[in-house]
């Protein structure tokens, strides 16, 4: 038998896979062969070390809660790449809007005068005329959008991120 065959038999012996007669025969050989005995000791040592070193580990205390919270939104979970894309898109949109506002891009369309008398042979309506302060409306839309943006960022990125951090540190 070569060394490779011996190793195979020794490992099967350690795993308890050898039949009883084969195990007795091996034990008899081991008593006579000190090199084989030494090899068995080496393998036994590895076996014992592997058992000692391989333990089942436990995740954080909030593991179960995190899984269950994310089950509520199947398919809608924000992945890291989607979160970054969302964050970058939101920032670009808001910065662009603020820049446009600061350079006065909407100043020329401050007021729209609707002055449209409606009359024909069948019907005559009173004159319709009022002013729309477009600058104020644009500012209002930007303000509402910024609020929505911060809400979105909080719900999709910040809250999940801090929840995850908190659950890991617990």
């Amino acid at each position: 038998m070569n060394a490779s065959d011996n190793d195979e038999i020794l490992l099967r012996y350690l795993d308890g896979e050898l039949s009883e007669p084969a195990a007795i025969e091996l034990q008899a050989t081991l008593e006579k062969d000190s090199r084989l005995q030494q090899r068995l000791n080496e393998l036994r040592e590895v076996h014992a070390l592997l058992i000692a070193a391989t333990k089942v580990q436990t995740p954080s205390l909030k593991f179960e809660e995190s899984v269950m919270n994310n089950l509520q939104l199947p398919g809608q979970r924000v992945t890291r790449s989607r979160a970054w894309l969302l964050l970058a898109g939101s920032l670009v949109a808001s910065i662009t809007m603020l820049l446009l506002l600061s350079v006065g891009a909407f100043n020329n369309s401050t007021t729209i005068l609707i002055d449209a008398p409606v009359s024909n042979t069948l019907i005559t309506l009173p004159e319709l005329s009022f002013n729309l302060n477009m600058r104020m409306i644009v500012n209002l839309i930007v303000f509402v959008n910024l609020i929505l943006l911060f809400f979105l960022l909080d719900r999709t990125i910040l809250k999940p991120y801090f929840n995850q951090r908190r659950s890991y540190h617990l």
Binding site: Q57, P59, F63, V67
Partner: peptide, 11 residues
């Protein structure tokens, strides 16, 4: 099921 299998899944 999560409670039962979380440790081994994590390991």
């Amino acid at each position: 099921l999560v409670r039962e299998y979380k440790n081994l899944a994590f390991t």
